[in-house]
Nucleic acid binder design. Sequence first.
DNA 1: GCCAACGTTGGC
DNA 2: GCCAACGTTGGC
Length: 173
Amino acid sequence: MAKKKASASPTPTAGRRYWLFKSEPESYSIQHLEKEPTQTTFWDGVRNYQARNSLRDDVKVGDRVLMYHSNCDPLIIAGTMEVVRAGYPDHTAFDPNDHHYDPKSKPDAPTWYMVDVRWQQTFETPVTREQLAEDPETATMVVMQRGSRLSIQPVTEKEWNAVHRLAGVKPGR
DNA sequence: GCCAACGTTGGC
DNA sequence: GCCAACGTTGGC
């Protein structure tokens, strides 16, 4: 477990990547994350190979993440998170009692991976899907593509900045 | 609640 | 290795 000094900020900007993670707020919302004792959680339950590859190989400590609330009304980007631990095996796949149990994933040969994220900010004015569709800089985001079911998606810096503009806040530190 | 799009499974 | 059937996702 990686404890971080409060003063120790961050991670260099260079090489930082941006992502969008989907969650159904009924299961887990940004409000849940904000209320966690450490405002940190492990992002478990991803059971799609393309998304798994991103979590295992590409999502790095210091990367920034938009949290998208799916399957709800209104559909929004609710806020942002910071990656605090890079890909490691998703242990919920090993637990037969867990909803995300997958017998083909073994501790010595894990199929599924997760990362740890820390709450960064909850947008006072969340950005709605409708806004994303209307703005030329965000309309092309992966999340807006018809039939896009990918739960871990790359976001460009331009899109990251545009989402913050729509939220009425400065793009984070 | 509906249903299109998508990923996975399994018979052949 | 093809592809139909199936289950799931997720916007509407």
